[in-house]
Amino acid sequence: MTARQAGAVTAVKAVAVRRRLLDANWPYQLLTFAVFAAGWELYARERGGLLLPGFAQTVRATAGLLADAELWHALAVSNQALVLGFALALLVGVPAGIVLGRFRLIERYADVYLNILLVTPMAAIIPLLVMSVGVGLTSRILLVTVFSVVMVIVNCRTGVRQVDPSLIEMARSFGARERQIWTRILLPGALPAIMTGARLGIGRAVTGMVIVELLMVSDGLGGLILKYRGLLKAPELYGTVVIILAEALFLISLARWGENKVTRWARTQTAGGAR
């Protein structure tokens, strides 16, 4: 290979690397985060006080919390309700959404209750749970479920309705039974929407986990927030919120990764059809 050819290959590689960097999301996210952190620090120094720590102070407090056993105990308590409540939301929401999307008659009876769940402020349900099941793990699990199950049901129903009806009619014309229609057409066609509902539901589940601990049970991460607020420990308060946000972003990213893995075939078919 001549020096000119080697230089051309190097230039092509440099262009490819530059293009990958421009197409990636993380450089823009890092830039946005840097601007946000700088703005936070400057504002805290100019206008902040006892209740508004700077960005650097919050980072130090977050690192200190991660070395504290109390935080990990609170995480274990909170995530117990999160895991069980979200699992219950999936067990109830996925079959319910699929059935509502498939059978319009059943949807006529259940649609009003689904709309109630969509428009009702979830914080208003907390006193009802307290009076019906008491204060404890059961009520926390139920509230997390109520928060997240709506997103799962709505997306599953939408996924089933998006399946091309002509595929179902064609399958019936070839003698397919109802079970075969479900396993070969409806469920595979609705899978992308089901995974999207799970991803959106996990974010709502984290929200429910924190709200129930703030308004009903002073335990877990919500209990830490109330504790640091009462003691006017603003850096630790902000650090706890940062940890909750980090957990939520991690879970959503994990759900998105699983969604991309499970529904890769759907994106491949879409790209093939676009050609």
Rank of each mutant, 00 (worst) to 15 (best):
L118A: 14
R104Q: 10
S148M: 04
A274N: 02
P165T: 08
V144T: 03
E169V: 01
R161M: 12
A74M: 05
V135L: 13
L215K: 06
A8I: 00
R20V: 11
R19S: 14
L200K: 07
T270C: 01
K227G: 00
R172P: 01
G203L: 00
R102T: 13
Q162V: 00
K233Q: 13
V262A: 09
P235F: 04
G7W: 05
V59L: 15
I181T: 01
D164Y: 07
L249M: 11
A96G: 06
S132R: 07
G197Q: 03
P188G: 06
T62S: 13
E213A: 04
V130G: 03
A246E: 01
A44Q: 09
L71G: 05
G101H: 12
A123W: 03
A69N: 04
M151Y: 10
A34V: 14
A176W: 05
G159S: 05
A61Q: 02
M151A: 15
A63M: 13
R104D: 10
V12Y: 02
F250L: 15
L82K: 08
I243T: 12
G136I: 04
I98E: 09
V262E: 03
E259C: 06
F103T: 06
L30P: 02
M1Y: 02
N25K: 14
P127C: 02
T196L: 10
G54W: 10
A110N: 03
R18W: 10
I252Q: 09
A274Q: 09
T32A: 15
L100G: 04
G134T: 07
P165K: 12
V130W: 03
A190N: 02
V242A: 14
L128M: 13
A171P: 06
A234Y: 09
P188E: 00
E169Y: 01
P53C: 10
V144L: 04
G220W: 07
V150W: 11
V94Y: 01
G39P: 08
T10R: 14
L82S: 02
K13S: 10
I181R: 00
V154L: 13
E259W: 04
L91W: 11
V133D: 08
L191C: 08
V144W: 09
G93A: 09
R267C: 00
M131K: 03
T58D: 10
A234M: 11
A110D: 04
